[in-house]
Simulated assay, not measured.
Amino acid sequence: MTETTETRTADPVATVSSTLLEARDLHVEFTSRGRRARAVDGVNLSLGAGEIVALVGESGCGKTTLARTLLGLERPTSGEVRYGGQPLKYGSKALKAYRRQVQLVLQDPTGSLNPRQTVYEAVAEGPRIHRMPDEAEVVNSALARAGLRPPERFLLRYPHELSGGQRQRVVIAGALALNPKVLVADEPVASLDASVRGEILALMLKLRDDLGLSALVVTHDLGLAWNIADRVAVMYLGRIVESGPVEQVLTAPRHPYTQALLSVLPESPERVVLTGEPPDPTRIPGGCRFHARCQILASGKAAEAGVDARCRGELLDILPASALSQAACHYADATG
């Protein structure tokens, strides 16, 4: 089959209870010089109230584009983003109200903060845009919740006067100042020293427990996913290829791509070295989109299971949004 025929879709209705934020059959395409890149190519994903979901995958797999689309920063080519059961509207007033509920925490706190603004000004920016009352009280409360106590010590400091962990806490405080329901955290600890990462992850878990916050954590680090997430969704070339409860997916991965990602962890008994780079999203291969790099296919195990031809030529259904463990893999289906 040609790539233009890849339209088979499973039922996208989520089975996650108390769904708060949802992607339904989401597609995001970019066109340049006549070439169409399918950055997000049919994703169903749900985030429940008070739940942390880790979205993992290599650079270029589409996870940041998916996160930006869930934030309303990109418009889907087709499919929809739903919040609180309602489709996201893209008018300026609707987006402003939505972004008070769903806040972004960026990877690089140094780049996120204006070096000419004090901590107070940085945290107060959102409340001012939304014309919230009692600005000083809101800022102090947000800093305290982000672990910068007493907040008075930090109000007049500039970013260069803070440590990396303190800067990341200021960024988190800026999001918390709007009392959001959801945080979308893009590689929230990637730029931090190892000694500080645990503190920031512990803070996010505390915010979930104390405030009922939900979080979508975008990361390439499966170790981070293990430490913080309730569920994990593994993304490859614009699609979720495996998802489920973090313990099930990371202790018994079914998709060869997830197995390869996990093999780089220190405790892994066997290292899987993937050949080549992820394919160009303007030229997604037919069959299983991972088959050109798949160690199961290359080793002959897929042939032994009688699915090698299917891996190369038969399209896989798009995974539904589900709380259950699932994988889009012919070999996993054949071997149980």
Rank of each mutant, 00 (worst) to 15 (best):
T2Y: 14
E6G: 01
D11V: 10
V13S: 09
E22Y: 13
S32A: 14
R33P: 00
G34E: 01
R36Q: 11
A37D: 01
R38T: 08
L45Y: 03
E51S: 01
I52T: 15
V56E: 01
E58T: 01
E58Y: 01
S59M: 03
L66M: 06
A67G: 12
R68A: 04
E74W: 07
P76G: 10
P76Y: 06
G79D: 07
E80P: 09
E80Q: 15
Y83Q: 11
K93P: 00
A94E: 15
A97C: 03
A97G: 03
Q103L: 14
T110S: 15
R116A: 05
E121C: 03
A124F: 08
A136I: 03
N140E: 12
A144P: 00
L148P: 13
P150F: 12
F154W: 11
R157S: 04
L162A: 08
G174T: 04
A177N: 09
A177Y: 05
V184F: 09
L192E: 02
V196K: 01
V196F: 02
A202F: 00
V218Q: 09
T219A: 11
G223N: 08
A229Y: 02
D230N: 08
V232S: 11
Y236G: 07
P245A: 13
V246M: 02
E247V: 15
Q248E: 15
P253K: 05
T258G: 01
T275Q: 14
E277F: 00
P285D: 12
C288W: 03
R293Y: 13
Q295A: 10
L297A: 04
L297D: 01
K301H: 06
A305R: 06
G306D: 12
A309F: 06
R310F: 12
C311G: 08
E314G: 14
D317A: 14
I318N: 06
S322E: 12
Q326N: 10
A327P: 06
C329T: 07
